[in-house]
């Protein structure tokens, strides 16, 4: 794979340096057959250092995970080797099964099939609270 030329896929740019691997794992990119590249500590005029992920296929991307792990990231959607769309991430209002409730008194501890849902309760503080017990997500 030539990491500069993607036919149809994504360039996830401006990932906070060091967060690339976490996103790779959370998005389960290890399960993909297509070429995937992670660039660590690329130099950035804006951020100093940043991580970049390139995916050479138009898979379904979980933008909530991206927005949660690196709210400043951008996603370039490439179609036929051309930039088709540029998406800016932000902290999502709601997270489902991205983070998990650790409160031992929460109903999610006894009913394992329940989705772990968190709502953004304070954007400035990046604060998420469990939909069931309202304890703070970490």
């Amino acid at each position: 794979m030539n990491i500069d030329s993607i036919k149809n896929g994504y360039v996830i740019d401006h990932i906070k340096a060091g967060k690339g691997m976490e996103i790779y794992n959370l998005l389960r990119l290890d399960l993909l057959d297509c070429p995937v590249a992670i660039i660590k500590n690329a130099s950035s005029s804006k951020m100093g250092k940043k991580d970049i992920i390139k995916i050479d296929a138009l898979i379904e991307l979980n933008m909530d995970i991206l927005g949660y792990v690196s709210p400043d990231a951008t996603v370039d959607v490439i179609k036929d080797e051309k930039l088709a769309e540029k998406k800016k991430m932000s902290l999502p209002e709601k997270l489902t099964d991205v983070i998990f409730c650790k409160n031992p008194r929460c109903i999610t501890t006894t009913e394992q099939e329940l989705p772990h849902i968190f709502h953004l309760t304070d954007r400035d503080e990046c604060e998420y609270r469990c939909a069931y017990c309202e304890s703070r997500g970490k």
Binding site: R105, C106, I107, C133, E134, S135
Partner: peptide, 25 residues
């Protein structure tokens, strides 16, 4: 006794649910 159990009930019931106390929540 578990926090959030009445919410789970409300998400699944087809009738109104009143929380009569869920743990210390």
């Amino acid at each position: 006794p578990k926090e959030g159990a009445p919410l789970v009930a409300a998400m699944n019931a087809s009738i109104p649910v009143i929380n009569a106390g869920d743990g210390g929540h």
